[in-house]
Write a protein that binds this DNA or RNA. Structure first.
Lengths: 185, 185
DNA sequence: ATATAATATATGATTAATCATATATAAGGA
DNA sequence: TCCTTATATATGATTAATCATATATTATAT
């Protein structure tokens, strides 16, 4: 479902091919909704079947023909209905937390290494996030209005705040392990 | 993959049936790894096929026979290898952030309602999390050691910190909308 | 000269997860 | 009495997502 709406969201800005959309995803929302090329193409086919989008075939000579997708009125209405509707559920799953839950099986040294590993990953992601504003470049031309830009920055702010909270959590655990505050069996 | 290790983690504490495991999941890790009954049964079958677990059939008279699963040495080794190994990737996907990304299509009033909806959901989840320690009851008998209890509380702390950071983010957005700081097109 | 990246779309296979439903019996509540 | 809940396991169908691979041409880099 979500991918359909993400694609409709971009088609609402401008008509695009599947190839365009893959690049746009990879330079914008991939941080909270990565999309596989094959899945984008299959979803475009489904959106067309539902008459939320229409295909315009653009023949090319030396390149494969392009299939440019245009959002329909039906599609636009569907998008706005979803946007104004109730909040979709956030994905609750976290594989790292399964490791934490059962980490009592490890020695204190292993626990320390594990959480230092978590912290390293989180710092790497945070520094990636901090570089995002500098990478808007090519995408900025697609999203023209300052209003759209504002909401794009909000998603980034969300990521940064979440990751900071997670990093603080991990650092707090590391301090506890080092202080010998982890109970033994 | 993750579900396999979660099940191995519990079988490492004690032998259980699929039915037991479903109840244990629902009173413990369902907040970060919900599991469907049918998926638990199918995964137990797979774990048995991989010789990470063994079945003990316990006939009953007035109830259906129980299939009690025991972790094997192979299974225990596999679990510990995974626990000590590299951090698994966190799930990046967030459907709510797709709504935020395209929220510029809504009016300021709709945006305000949307974020108040987010905040309400987050507050509800937070208050659920705050009630978790009181609900340990039945599960506490399964996890005996204070060490295991400590790590269980760490997963809860992670959830609370994340959710608080998210709520602060939403409240910050609400304040910005109310202050008329959202750019128009 | 050779390899790989870019342009462009498409399908097959597989996995993880969800939803629905089936079977069978007993206990407890309305 | 009738309905629901609890005990216990199992399968079929479907969806979302991933991975691999196929096709075909041009431009660029080694």
């Amino acid at each position: 479902m979500s991918l359909e709406f993400a694609i409709l969201g971009f088609l609402n800005y401008h008509p695009y091919t599947g190839y365009d959309l893959k690049k746009i995803f990879d330079t914008s929302i991939r941080h909270f909704w990565p999309a596989d090329q094959s899945q984008i193409y299959r979803t475009l086919a489904r959106l067309t079947g539902q008459r939320f989008a229409e295909v315009e075939k653009v023949p090319q000579e030396d390149r494969p023909d392009r299939k440019v997708y245009h959002i329909t009125e039906r599609g636009r209405a569907e998008l706005l209905r979803w946007l104004a509707g109730p909040p979709p559920m956030g994905e609750p799953r976290s594989a790292p937390l399964i490791q934490v839950f059962f980490a009592g099986q490890l020695s204190d040294e292993e626990v320390l290494a594990k959480f230092e590993g978590f912290a390293a990953v989180m710092r790497a992601i945070l520094s990636q996030y901090n570089q995002v504003p500098a990478q808007i470049g090519p995408y900025e031309q697609e999203i023209t209005s300052p209003r759209e830009h504002f909401f794009w920055l909000l998603t980034l702010d969300n990521g940064i705040r979440s990751m900071r909270a997670n990093l603080e959590w991990a650092e707090n655990v590391i301090a506890q392990v080092k202080a010998g505050k982890v109970p033994h069996k």
